[in-house]
Design a protein around this nucleic acid. Structure first.
Length: 454
RNA sequence: GUGGGUAUAGCUCAGCUGGUUAGAGCAUCAGAUUGUGGUUCUGAGGGUCGUGGGUUCAAGUCCCAUUAUCCACCCCA
């Protein structure tokens, strides 16, 4: 093994075909975002660590990639610090930047920083890579793209409705059948209040979020762990498992949280969203997911998660409402709501379903065989005209055996090869071979321009 | 952070209870075919078997360590 080339684990190279397919996904998502009036922004790959730390919980902080300071980063570090070997203390002294972990927190920073240049409500989308020092596994990478779409500065529940429409639109266009689950953090808070475990809301939500994965029994064990009595659990679990009409689920939940003002508010919000959705024609199923919680602890209202119906591969899209994200950056009372599409998982689903359009192979339409000198010059002129007509074309760059030039065209899946030697130059025609059918005939340049639509 | 699997040609892998010069398919290159690819046929190149140590007359094969990688858990897209 002479070559030792490799890339860091959890990262990937993309070959032309993959790249084309990924761009197809990004383009589809982007076009839907634009259709609903969202504007693009971009933020740097790295942020100040102070911006990122503490926003994703203890686990999240561990998963941040930190960037070593340039220069003499050990100056200012005392021998005592080194002797203590406390990673966190030390790291904070020679790392002041980190790679972004998601797009939402940098967006919050962006909003606060540019508040005077932004028109609110601000509808933005952002499609960029993020990095997590996670241990990679199937469908999980250390570098991956997020496609975020958020509205900030509006409390209206119409935003939630719009986001669900966007989700439906995107997956319909991509041809992926999905189920959209919706819940509301306020309802979960209400349940925790009623159960008297308000202080344990996070472990509580983490536990019930696993319902589909570890089953009722597993959730029961976890709930007992946080000290819930069996009586409460018996009350709670049937409702979490409820999979009937959305209205019925809401009625049951309403009964459970009837003594919690927050809980009832959540029920009300969900009703409004579902009511609005009823009048729209969506191709995806949108259901109430009582056990849906999502890990990130900054959600305060709606929670949304999307799963593929035909492939088991985690969530393809998720998000929710966060009432005070910009608060930590000194701009309180700004409410935002948004969702994030996971491009890599969408790719995996499409790959597994064979859902990529076959026309994506889009490459050079006509390759000209290179016979050298005069012939090449003649081709260049013809090609210029073809390109002006919108037909992508290329000349094989080297004067080598025809066989090799044809092999290249075949490997590149180029549909037409033009052969122009002395004879063709004299007659001013083009000997064009259809690589698929093998047919070959003399044609005029005019006829070639018609290839565009084929 | 915890647990398990794997490591042999560019890629995917075979290689038995240790025993001559480590194999196959695909890919690459060349020829059959000097202006014609995808099919077919013929041939060629390419490996200090992840790394380091140990057991043995003998190690790709057994043992230990190490590194890389994959899978699962935690968490997450």
């Amino acid at each position: 093994m002479t070559s030792t080339t490799s890339i860091p684990k959890g990262t990937r190279d993309f070959l032309p075909q993959e790249s084309i397919r990924r761009n197809y996904i990004f383009d589809t998502i982007r076009s839907v975002f634009r259709l609903y009036g969202y504007q693009p922004i971009e933020t740097p790959a790295m942020e100040n660590l102070s911006t990122l730390l503490g926003k994703y919980g203890e686990e999240g902080d561990k998963l941040l990639f930190r960037i070593l300071n340039s220069g003499d980063f050990l100056s200012g570090v005392t021998d005592q610090d080194l002797a203590d070997k406390n990673i966190n203390t030390l790291a904070s002294q020679f790392c002041e930047k980190g790679l972004r972990y998601d797009l939402t927190v940098p967006f919050a920073r962006f909003v606060v920083q540019h508040r005077n240049e932004i028109t609110f409500p601000f509808k933005r989308y952002q499609i960029q890579p993020v990095w997590r020092a996670d241990r990679p596994q199937k469908g999980r990478y250390r570098e991956f793209f997020q496609c975020d779409v958020d509205v900030i500065g509006s409390d209206s529940l119409l935003n939630e409705v719009e986001l669900i429409q966007i989700i439906d639109d995107v997956f319909t266009r991509l041809g992926i059948r999905v189920q959209v689950q919706v819940n509301n953090r306020k309802v979960l808070t209400g349940i925790a209040e009623v159960l008297g475990i308000g202080d344990q809301i996070i472990p509580f939500t983490v536990a019930i979020d696993k319902l589909e994965k570890i089953g009722t029994g597993g959730v029961l064990t976890e709930l007992q762990h946080i000290g819930l009595t069996e009586e409460f659990i018996r009350q709670l679990v049937p409702i979490l498992e409820l999979r009937s009409e959305n209205d019925e689920v809401l009625v049951a939940l309403e009964h459970l949280v009837r003594t919690s003002i927050t809980g009832l508010k959540g029920i009300q919000e969900l009703r409004t969203v579902f009511e609005n959705l009823k009048h729209l024609h969506l191709s995806s199923e949108v259901i109430m997911g009582p056990s849906l919680a999502r890990g990130l602890n900054y959600y305060t209202g709606a929670i949304i998660e999307v799963r593929a119906l035909d492939v088991q591969l985690g969530s393809l899209c998720g998000g929710g409402r966060y009432d005070n994200l910009t608060g930590v950056f000194g701009m309180p009372d700004i409410s935002g709501v948004g969702v994030s599409f996971g491009a890599e998982r969408i790719y995996d689903v499409l790959a597994e379903l064979g859902g990529f359009p076959p026309t994506l192979i889009n490459t050079t339409k006509v390759m000209f065989v290179n016979f050298g000198g005069k012939e090449a010059q003649h081709c260049l002129k013809l090609m210029q005209e073809l390109r002006e007509a919108g037909i992508s074309t290329e000349l094989y760059p080297d004067v080598v055996k025809i066989k090799k030039q044809f092999s290249y065209a075949d490997a590149r899946k180029i549909p037409y090869v033009a052969i122009i030697g002395e004879e063709e130059m004299k007659s001013g025609q083009i000997n064009l071979k259809n690589m698929k059918t093998g047919e070959q005939a003399l044609t005029d340049l005019k006829d070639l321009t018609g290839l565009k639509d084929r």
